[in-house]
Simulated scan of single mutants.
Amino acid sequence: MAQDIAPSQPNLWPYILPTVLVLGGVTLYPIATVLWMSLHDWTWGGDSIFSDVKNYRLLWLKGSFLIALLNTVTFAISAVLVELVLGMILALAANRVTRGAGLFRVLMILPLMVSGIAVSLVWKVLLDPTFGVINAALGAIGLPEPNWLGSTTAAMPSLVMVETWWQTGFVFIILAAALKSLPEEPFEAARLEGANGWQMFRYLTLPMLRPVIVTVVVFRLIDTLKVFDLVFGLTGGGPLRATEAVQTLTYQTAFKFSNFGEAAAIVVIFSALIFAICAAYGALDRRTGGAE
């Protein structure tokens, strides 16, 4: 009796190997170069001297990196939490709107089309304590006129506010699309059982949106941890390092003080942090997938 012969699988390696080699080269070579630089004392135009882990010890002793790391983490967590809450509220509102929802979505994503430096310049003018429109409006109604970007207490919240205005549209558009894809049957059954809006949101909407929410949080967290343009354009890391971020510290260490070895050490440590977040997300995603 003739047996069916399974078709042989084509060998795809000759086709994908060049791409793998190119991608591996453009990824691994910069990583190896940064690791090599972090173990050397090297200034622009000077000799490269092997220094072992001296640059890493200096980062710990100086304390400037720890301050920048704390500021960066504070900024990232604050911005992501505010954006997630606002994005969820706006997505739920847009999901209930029948007329004008398309225009509302367009208006929400408009800030995403603007570059970070342009956003920084516009908001620096708006938040100017002397000539800014915001302080002028506050003064006209008798409210205090804070020094938004020049105060150690107000500078970080001001950065979070600008980041929220700029990037909440991203969270909104993802959550709004996810809400549209949810099945209607569980909600109809809950309504028949007498559940109110909060109960349906807590026990139906949130659990079904959890994978999307986790993905949005991870992506936004990684993006905000890499903040540079807003800090560079609005405060430059001041006042008194109150808004110094890891990326701006790296830039100043490398191009202002010409200490490329120490800047490379900052990049290595910060990249390890980003990699840890990605690994944690991957483990959580696999665990969630396995549970499902």
Score class of each variant (00 low, 15 high):
2 A>R: 14
3 Q>L: 15
5 I>C: 05
9 Q>K: 13
13 W>K: 09
16 I>Y: 15
33 T>S: 15
34 V>G: 11
35 L>C: 13
35 L>R: 11
44 W>G: 14
51 S>E: 11
57 R>I: 12
59 L>A: 08
59 L>K: 08
59 L>T: 10
59 L>Q: 08
65 F>M: 08
73 V>L: 12
80 V>A: 01
81 L>M: 05
88 M>E: 00
91 A>M: 04
91 A>R: 06
94 A>Y: 13
94 A>I: 15
95 N>L: 02
104 F>M: 15
112 L>I: 05
116 G>S: 04
120 S>H: 03
120 S>T: 00
122 V>P: 00
127 L>D: 05
129 P>S: 06
136 A>R: 10
139 G>W: 07
140 A>S: 15
144 P>G: 06
150 G>W: 05
151 S>D: 15
156 M>A: 00
157 P>T: 00
159 L>T: 03
161 M>C: 01
162 V>C: 05
164 T>F: 02
164 T>G: 02
167 Q>T: 02
182 L>T: 05
186 P>I: 04
187 F>C: 03
189 A>Y: 08
190 A>P: 03
194 G>R: 07
205 T>M: 10
206 L>W: 15
209 L>V: 11
212 V>A: 14
215 T>N: 10
219 F>R: 04
222 I>N: 12
224 T>Q: 06
226 K>P: 00
232 F>N: 10
232 F>D: 10
234 L>Y: 04
236 G>R: 07
239 P>N: 07
239 P>V: 01
247 Q>Y: 03
251 Y>W: 14
251 Y>S: 07
253 T>E: 13
254 A>F: 05
257 F>L: 11
257 F>V: 12
259 N>I: 05
265 A>C: 04
267 V>K: 04
267 V>G: 07
268 V>F: 08
269 I>Q: 00
271 S>F: 14
283 A>K: 11
286 R>A: 14
286 R>Y: 14
292 E>C: 13
